[in-house]
Design a protein around this nucleic acid. Sequence first.
DNA 1: ATAAACTTTCAATAAGTTTTGAAAGTTTAA
DNA 2: TTAAACTTTCAAAACTTATTGAAAGTTTAT
Lengths: 168, 168
Amino acid sequence: MELPEAKQKFIEAWGKLGSEWGINRTMAQVHALLLVTPGELTTEEIMESLSISRGNANMTLRDLMGWGLVEKLHKAGERKEYFFADKNTWNIARQVAKERRKRELEPVMKILDELVKVKGDSKDPEYATFNKSVTDINKMAKNVDKTLDTMLKAEENWFWGSIFKMFK
Amino acid sequence: MELPEAKQKFIEAWGKLGSEWGINRTMAQVHALLLVTPGELTTEEIMESLSISRGNANMTLRDLMGWGLVEKLHKAGERKEYFFADKNTWNIARQVAKERRKRELEPVMKILDELVKVKGDSKDPEYATFNKSVTDINKMAKNVDKTLDTMLKAEENWFWGSIFKMFK
DNA sequence: ATAAACTTTCAATAAGTTTTGAAAGTTTAA
DNA sequence: TTAAACTTTCAAAACTTATTGAAAGTTTAT
């Protein structure tokens, strides 16, 4: 397989995975493009390379910056803005984990905390079932949250090293 | 908060979380409904309870069974089919992890394995950048895969216990 | 065999999401 | 200032996904 075809495949695969995980396909593709590009790209080049409109490119880049996955660069004496992605895979994973925790896990945990407090007659199967499910899910959410917290602070080698020592 | 309202909130929250993670909202809601229901429900009751059509209920229940999260039950002397969810949170998490690994992680890993093999001139920044990103992501995918594998085989207490001992 | 009780299918439609592109806005150099 | 070079916005259109509901299919009891 030649390099340009391989890049194309990578961009497609990343886009598909993104869309299966609730991330807009184009956003994942722009990210993938920047990951396999040495240096920076202009909006123009991204539009061209992925055949997307100016508006789409602009919004997608904005979102990617909002996720902390892409940064802008101004070159001295140039009008254009250049974009590049942090290419450290562990940083990417942490950044995504951090954002999703904030945007999705935290709101759900807040609701679960409320629901765990709901009082009722524990002889009533309706109540007992509700309470058990909510309590169990709440515990799991807290475990996930703690683990993410550790991950966010961890160095990659230490993290996986610890995991595999444990699960040997 | 009263029980019916609390159930409603739980169903909504679960539906929202599902849709953010690439799982159809209705599917997550039906699952949530079954999680807070003692015993079983008929298609009719699910339709009624969530205000969805017969066709939608049927397909959603089929999907949930495909994910291994819900089972059918035939009661002796009755024509109707009854549905219930496994309420063990750890089983649910494992089941979801198992299916997503099969449906999403595995196909991507197959492509990454191909892309890692692509040859080129390592002096060429285009190639070097591509190769590094793909190789790094491939390694991370393999780490995730191994961890999931451990999780699938693990007992809940042991799993979290090990994780927290490590990350103390 | 028949019919009642139930389940499944799927074409049509609705709802939701993404993308476009032209117009408005901004910045910079001269 | 002005105008060129660039970025941002957003209403409309395209596309994607989810839902409906009626018709077809299946099962069971008689």
